[in-house]
């Protein structure tokens, strides 16, 4: 099977000296849905920001065989669809249309193709009725969906999602899980929601203190209560 993400001994230290990642090595195969779990401050978000070169630590990161380097950033960011935890950070345009069209416009696509991608992406998340609305007139759950649509419009080869169910009510949470199940093949999902991980993901990677603690099939990790307890996840 093709490797979509290849990472070798990735280290990262913040400018203030905080060590965030201490040598992470892992691969994600095409079609896999992988959950990244770990307590607060484990380094999950920092790790995700390495996948499209926003942070660049020591070690090697490859997406679809392409090394994450300055010259490749545009191609890398098209391949890695990154959905941030807070949709208000992601949606910054005056209308939903503009926000979903932002990525395709940056790719320099023509007008018809942009419109096609916008309607296709909004339809995929069930928000086709909101094209002309302003993001701040939508509910939190709706904004979350639109945030997902904004990266689908790039047609990425891997979807990277930070806390997809955080702050959602149970119904929106269910809807989001159903959406992610139907969507896209390869996904990396950082989450505290173990139920989501067991429902959606075939594999779980446990991160703590910037290190990979466990990497195994989802069922195996979720059964291991001692492990989960040791890392503050239950």
């Amino acid at each position: 099977m093709k490797k979509v993400i290849e990472i070798e001994s990735l280290h990262f230290t913040y400018p203030d000296g905080t060590v965030a990642l201490r040598g992470i090595t892992l691969d994600v195969l095409e079609g896999e849905k992988v959950a990244l779990i770990g307590p607060n401050g484990a380094g999950k978000s920092t790790f995700l920001l390495h996948l499209n070169g926003i942070f660049r630590g020591d070690g090697s990161v490859r997406i679809d065989g392409l090394p994450v380097e300055k010259d490749n950033l545009k191609a890398i960011r098209q391949k890695v669809g990154m959905v941030f935890q807070n949709p208000d950070d992601q949606l910054f345009c005056p209308t939903v249309f503009d926000d979903v069209a932002f990525g395709p416009r940056n790719l320099g696509l023509d007008h018809d193709e942009i419109e096609r991608r916008v309607s296709e992406s909004l339809a995929a998340v069930g928000m086709e009725g909101s094209v002309k609305k302003s993001p701040f007139r939508l509910s939190f759950g709706e904004r979350k969906r639109v945030a997902i649509a904004t990266v689908l419009a790039l047609r990425p080869s891997v979807l990277v999602i930070d806390e997809p169910t955080a702050n959602l009510d149970p119904r929106s949470r269910r809807a989001t899980i159903a959406l992610l199940r139907d969507l896209h093949d390869t996904q990396v999902i950082a989450t505290h929601d173990l139920a989501l991980a067991s429902e959606l993901c075939s594999r779980i990677i446990l991160l703590d203190s910037g290190q990979k603690v466990a990497d195994a099939p989802a069922a195996k990790i979720l059964e291991d209560n001692t492990l989960l307890q040791a890392h503050g996840l239950v």
């Binding site: 926003i54 992601q90 209308t95 932002f102």
Partner: peptide, 18 residues
Amino acid sequence: RVYHAMTSRGFDGRVPVE
């Protein structure tokens, strides 16, 4: 954070306007 989210979608300094 907004800037990170923008660069993740290929932002190169110009905000496209309809």
